[in-house]
């Protein structure tokens, strides 16, 4: 009774036992089910591995080492086209860049010295330290060579300086307008920078005029409308419009974000009754849509394969 039925089914069963779909029915070019499952599982395990910690950091580093030079080369090729004609004469260009960086560093220190933050702090410390020299930091100049697309919903960029230039994770990145972000990871010749407008970024901030502390969180808004939310620790303080916000943080550069770097200014203030805190919206000074030359704050005397702008403005 069951004989003929079993006889018909057997070949199919055995084919399935070996994990093969009946090939004659398959259209050419269509993937086997086993491959689909294998790739899906690979994606899932990658997400789990990466989500649970830095298990994939070596892989990221290897890919970065390979891709970084190509990115730098492509950026070097496209730069003249996008309007920086100075690239045509390399030496003149480099000289110009050095001059620009010196000027940038001078501007930066001047800006920091004259910030209300510094005046308030000097008054507080009553001349115990000379704050200006505290804030002077050595900078490694670098250029942005890769930008993460908004399709990734993250705000990260690649810069063309890596561990060979003395860069390591958690260093502060800034330009002549203000705070840009911090270094996430490095390869030999490139580094990935997390911008402060990224939703994952939190920066300790201080309202310069009142010295109130708070936390700046990125909103991840696209393009020119990049904004930060400032939440003050003391909910009774209301920041005023156009107040400058600077970083608080370490002066030794051991933890991310050195102190006293201008971040942005208050554009609007909301008080949230439910969360019992003041929330201010900050417009960053840096134009994140047009990032180019940045400086990475390194401890003075760092070994580097390129000229380092020292705290006193000299080049080394």
């Amino acid at each position: 009774m069951s004989g003929p039925g079993r006889g018909r089914r057997l070949p199919l069963m055995s084919a399935r036992d070996y994990g093969r779909a009946p090939r004659e029915d398959r259209e050419p070019g269509r993937p086997s089910r086993a491959l689909v499952v294998a790739l899906l599982l690979a994606c899932a395990s990658l997400m789990v591995l990466d989500g649970s910690g830095g298990a994939l950091d070596p892989a990221r580093r290897v890919v970065g080492e390979a891709v970084g030079p190509a990115q730098a080369a492509a950026d070097g090729m496209i730069r003249p086209v996008v309007g920086l004609s100075e690239r045509f004469e390399t030496q003149d260009h480099l000289r110009g860049e050095l001059a620009a960086l010196e000027a940038e560093n001078a501007d930066l220190r001047a800006a920091v010295r004259t910030a209300p933050y510094d005046r308030a702090r000097l008054a507080e410390l009553e001349g115990l330290t000379s704050a200006a020299t505290d804030l002077g930091q050595a900078l490694v100049p670098a250029r942005v060579i890769g930008v993460g697309p908004s399709q990734s919903f993250r705000s990260t960029v690649t810069i063309d300086a890596g561990s060979q230039s003395g860069i390591r994770p958690d260093l502060t990145v800034l330009n002549n307008d203000g705070l840009v972000g911090r270094v996430l990871r490095v390869t030999a010749t490139t580094a990935t920078v997390l911008l402060i407008v990224d939703p994952d970024s939190t920066v300790g901030g201080r309202v310069a005029a009142s010295m109130e502390l708070g936390f700046l969180k990125g909103r991840g808004v696209l393009g020119d409308a990049g904004r930060l939310d400032l939440e003050l620790v003391d909910e009774t303080v209301v920041p005023r419009k156009h107040d400058t916000v600077v970083t608080w943080g370490s002066t030794d550069g051991a933890s991310p974000y050195v102190a006293g770097v201008p971040v942005g200014e208050v554009v609007s203030v909301y008080s949230s009754l439910r969360e019992s805190s003041q929330r201010a919206v900050i417009d960053p000074y840096v134009d994140f849509a047009a990032l180019d030359v940045v400086g990475v704050v390194v401890p003075s005397g760092t070994r580097s394969d390129r000229a380092v702008v020292e705290a006193d403005g000299s080049l080394r």
Binding site: R60, G146, G148, T156, T158, R185
Partner: peptide, 21 residues
């Protein structure tokens, strides 16, 4: 996978791999 790992990517790896697959 390349897009997930190459700088300046910083999202959880495997997301672009799944999407592009």
């Amino acid at each position: 996978l390349l897009l997930d790992l190459a700088p300046p990517a910083d999202h959880v790896a495997g997301r672009w791999a799944l999407a592009l697959m």
